[in-house]
Nucleic acid binder design. Structure first.
Lengths: 115, 115
DNA sequence: TTAATATATAAGCATATAATTATATGGTGA
DNA sequence: TCACCATATAATTATATGCTTATATATTAA
């Protein structure tokens, strides 16, 4: 793991602004729990697929999440190598778990990832 | 001190967005070190007084800073009673100290607060 | 009271952001 | 190959944000 290079105020502000959106914060919070694919997020957030994609792009651009193609799906996960990983985890400690969202996905047969 | 009630995702996102501005993040970071009055911030950030005032208002509205009038000056400080205090401190741990800004103020005879 | 200083608020403007719809790209399986 | 599904990108639009200028308020001191 890279060391905590978030030690730059301007950069940190940019990260905080990115996490300062309830959809993106929730996404990152979920990914801290389990990986998740785009179509699952679409179901969870009741939002258009492009909107989800654009949020994920921002998170990916700053490096706190990473993507991996699995067949026709693109699976996102937290990037533990990110220079913002430690800060992100510290923030998520102040946010309630969203494990229930994965339960809901499974209940409704919408879970893609088999782990 | 109130307990950590930041445990609400939407509210937390709002806080993060507020801290996701380099001026406000820096303000809070400075206030974690020492209290500071409006005119000092104006000097530090080379920004108009209304701009500074508006940033401080946002921080005050969400409760992470508080104000206290001292004569003709209004002195701001971190609100340790805030429900976001713990989260804020955790975030500031990832931001470098700005003690030098206070030193600069003193050097230039711009320091108001005498503690 | 009046002038000077510090701060807050209001209005206006330029830019940023987040959503939508339409379209493009990429993988799967017949 | 083609049809289908998942995802990404582009263009557009509505709204939010941050700054500026102008003005109001509050305190101090003469």
């Amino acid at each position: 793991m890279k060391e905590d290079k978030s030690q730059d105020l301007k950069e940190t502000a940019i990260l905080l602004k990115l996490l300062g959106d309830k959809t993106r914060l929730s996404m990152v919070n979920m990914l801290a729990e389990q990986e998740c694919c785009v179509c699952e997020f679409v179901e969870i957030f009741q939002m258009s697929q492009p909107a989800i994609s654009q949020h994920l792009r921002k998170l990916r651009d700053i490096g706190i999440v990473k993507e991996q193609r699995k067949g026709q799906w693109v699976v996102y996960s937290l990037n533990t190598e990110s220079e913002y990983y430690l800060l992100t985890k510290d923030i998520l400690n102040h946010v309630p778990s969203e494990r229930d969202k994965f339960v809901w996905l499974e209940k409704n047969g919408l879970r893609i990832i088999c782990n």
